[in-house]
Design a binder for these strands. Sequence first.
DNA 1: CCATATTTGTGCGTATGTATG
DNA 2: TCATACATACGCACAAATATG
Lengths: 242, 242
Amino acid sequence: MSTEAATSGVALWRRVADGIELAIADGRYLPGGKLPGETEIAESYGVNRHTVRRALAALAERGLVRAERGSGTFVRSQRIAYPLRTRTRFSEIIGAGGREPRGQLIAAVDEPATGALAGQLDLKTGAPLIRLEALRSADGVPISLATTWVSAARFPDAPRIFATTRSMTKVLAHYGYDDYRRLSTRITASIVDATDASRLELQAGRPVLVVESIDVAADGTPLLTTRARFAAERVEFLVEGD
Amino acid sequence: MSTEAATSGVALWRRVADGIELAIADGRYLPGGKLPGETEIAESYGVNRHTVRRALAALAERGLVRAERGSGTFVRSQRIAYPLRTRTRFSEIIGAGGREPRGQLIAAVDEPATGALAGQLDLKTGAPLIRLEALRSADGVPISLATTWVSAARFPDAPRIFATTRSMTKVLAHYGYDDYRRLSTRITASIVDATDASRLELQAGRPVLVVESIDVAADGTPLLTTRARFAAERVEFLVEGD
DNA sequence: CCATATTTGTGCGTATGTATG
DNA sequence: TCATACATACGCACAAATATG
C-alpha cells in the first residue's frame, strides 16, 4: 500500500491510536477531558478523518475514550482498581486510591432463608435473615450495589449499626467478630436491571460485574453472604498473584 | 399484603422462584430443558400467572433460566466454573469439568509492538510481535476469544506450533519454557463487539468478561500478554482463597 | 426561542496493496 | 497470470446532536 507508511509497517490508524493512547498515559489529555476534534487530530497526524475515527473507535472499544455526538470525544476517567483478596474491605480499597469512600444503607428487610441462602450460611431453610441493601460510592460516584444476608438471630441490630457506622466490618466487630475473611468469590457479568441502573446512575444496557461471596469467621463459621453488582465501566478487578 | 403468605412471611413470588430453583438444583429440570408453561406452574403452586412471571423474571435476571417468546422458558446450562490461579490452563480447567476442550487458531499476524504492549513484554516499542487470535470452546460451545502477543524474535514459530498443538502451553514448552505462571490478571466487563459476537455465537448487546493477563517465566521474564473475552453467560470466575 | 457553527455519525464512491486460489 | 476478496486509506456530502450567542 503506498498510503501505508513504509517507515514502520504498522497500519496508519494503529499508529494514530497508539499516539493518542500515549498522550492519555502521559497526562497530556486528562481524565474526563476533551480530545481535539477529529478533523484537528487528522490534520496533526496528516491523515484522513476516517483514519482518526478508526483509531478512536479502537480506543473506545477498549474503554479509554467515549465519543459524544455534537460534543466531542472525551477521555474516560480511570477505572478504580479493586484487588480481590481474602480480606477485601471496600473503604480500605477506595481510601487507598485517595478517594472518599461512602456506604449508604438503602433498605433493610427481614426475610426467611431460602434453600440456597440457608445452605451458604449453614442455617436451616426458613431461618430468619436480614437482607441489607447498600450503595457504595467513591467521591460521590456510585460504584456498587451490595445485597447482604445475615442471620437475624445472630445479628439482630445489623440494620441499625450499619446505618450509623456505614460499615459491615463494624457490624461484625460489634458482635465480637473482629476477624473475618472471604471464603469464596464468584465473578460473573450481566446487564444492569432497571432499579440497579438508576441507583448506580448507569444507562440501560450497560454491563455490571456480579460478585457473589461468602465471608466466614476465623473458625470458619459463615457470617454473611453477599451479591454485589459493580458498574463495570468504573472498576477493574485485580487478582493477586501469590 | 393479604396475598403474601402468612405461613412463612416470604413473598409468594420468592417462594415460587425458590421452588423452581430447587427443582433445577435437584435436577428435576435439566440444563437446556424446558420448564412447564407459566399457567401450568401457576396452577401447581396455586398462584396467579403474574406471580409466576415475577418469579421467572427473577431467575432470568440471575441467569438461571432463559425465556423465549412463543416457545417457553428454558433452564440455562450451567456456567463453567473457571478458577483464576497463577497456573491457569484452559484445557485443564475445561477437562476437569468433564467437558471436551478445544482451541482453534483463527489468525496469526505479525505486527510491531505498540508502546503499551512493549512495556508489558519488556521490549522496545516497534519490536516485532506475533499476534495470535484463538477461539476456545467446551463441548463445541464457544467460551472465549483470546488475543495473545508474543515476541516474534523469541517465538518465531508460535503460529505453526499453536495451530498443530492447539495449546499455548506447548508453544512455550517447545522453546524451553516448561514452567510459567500468571503475573497479573485484570478483570473488566463490556459489551461484545460485532466480530466477537459472531465468533462467540452471542447476540448483540450481551456482556463479555474481559481478562487481561501477563504470563512470565520462572525467572520473571515476561513471555506473553493476553486479552481474552469470555462469554459472560457461559462462565463464572472463581477466585481462590489462600 | 432562534439562527448558526461545531462536532460526531453515517453513507457512498474510489483507489491501492495483500492474500488466496 | 488472472480473478476475486478483503483490509486500508482517502475524499466528499449530509444527518443528527450539541454549543453558543
